[in-house]
Nucleic acid binder design. Structure first.
Lengths: 200, 200
DNA sequence: TTCTGGTTTGACCAACTGGTCAAAATAACG
DNA sequence: CGTTATTTTGACCAGTTGGTCAAACCAGAA
């Protein structure tokens, strides 16, 4: 049986994962260095490697933790709910994730930009299945005349694109908007955009 | 006066820039190596450094070349044109750029993800000025009742996000869509989305 | 053909990279 | 307190990195 982790282990592993998230999400896997991560975690490099056997292991741990929750907002889209409310709710949850977990969003963006070397299989299986599934539900709503007739896949892409933009392109958004906090405006724009789009 | 570049110079500099675009757009500045770029360009590393004095120089040259044209679609948005047609035309031009220059889009995405260390000033000055300018035009149209009342900045963000998504997240889009070419569907979705949004 | 200037290369370097290891320092616990 | 298991560290290593340099190579004009 595996030993329960000590308090020190919990603290240091958490510090490493947080530091790794900072660094990997900014520089990507190859651009990040163990020295940077160790420094950000407040540990020496050998000490960091006492908790994770390799750079790859930290990255994998982060990616796995991310994937556990990354698809939750879409999974929660309920075929038996009110069509417009379900889709709008999904978009809102995604926008909230972009606000609350911008580093995770950028970690994911980096992984995809680099060709998704670690998660391509998951994209082609789990993700595709999930998206096809939900797309079929949305298509059903469209066919039943409950929402406007639109391509469900591209609808989902547009939600991903718009919501993640505020995390991934944060520095550009801030450069353009200046002081104003982006998210309030984004939320009401998103509401307008999708309620107009979905209205029959 | 500067000498005219020889045929060999033209060919090799072009090969290096193309190779650099491949590598930088995938791995980011820090993640890319001169060996990779030299290899992709079909040159030895010292030979590559005969044409560009440093890794930084290649990256800068690429970024400068990109910025020359990156904002053209938005610059072309004409305040004296038909409001809906102008905005839709802008979105369509951006989508076409995403289709025709995906590597450039990813190079830009990488730069922003990394905090825009090389172009933050440009974002805060040139880009912000341009966007504020065009946003004012769009706001004018909205105030005059020629298009629906929407936040022009977030409208522009949504166009950036959606169109660039197909280049930057290409591997994910393909994983989900399978064989089907993404761009046709994207174009007609975009048409539907923005004509519904802008209609008064 | 020779000369000349542009081009290419192999050998090299210092700094950095991910990672190892034995020893030292510290915590945990009876 | 003493003993033991965990944690931390300095020194180190082999491979890679961006970059240099002198020497060799080559294209083309005279």
């Amino acid at each position: 049986m595996t030993k329960a982790p000590t308090r020190i282990q919990q603290r240091n592993r958490a510090a490493i994962l947080s530091a790794g998230l900072d660094i990997f999400s900014q520089y990507g896997f190859r651009g990040a260095t163990l020295d940077q991560i160790a420094d950000a975690a407040g540990l020496s490099k050998p000490n960091l490697l006492y908790y994770f056997p390799s750079k790859e292991a930290i990255h994998t741990a982060l990616l796995e933790r991310l994937l556990e929750t990354w698809l939750d907002p879409l999974k929660a889209l309920d075929g038996s709910g009110d069509p417009v409310a379900e889709i709008m709710g999904y978009a809102q949850r995604k926008l909230a994730m972009s606000r609350d977990f911008p580093r995770e969003s950028r970690l994911f963006a980096n992984e995809i930009l680099q060709g998704a070397p670690h998660i391509e299989e998951i994209l082609k299986t789990d993700l595709k299945t999930l998206v096809d599934d939900k797309a079929a539900i949305i298509q059903g709503w469209a066919d039943a005349g409950k929402i406007a007739a639109i391509d469900p896949h591209h609808l989902i892409f547009s939600i991903w694109a718009f919501t993640q933009h505020y995390a991934d392109f944060d520095v550009q958004v801030r450069a353009v908007l200046g002081d104003k906090a982006p998210h309030d405006g984004a939320l009401s724009f998103l509401d307008t955009l999708y309620s107009k789009l979905l209205r029959v």
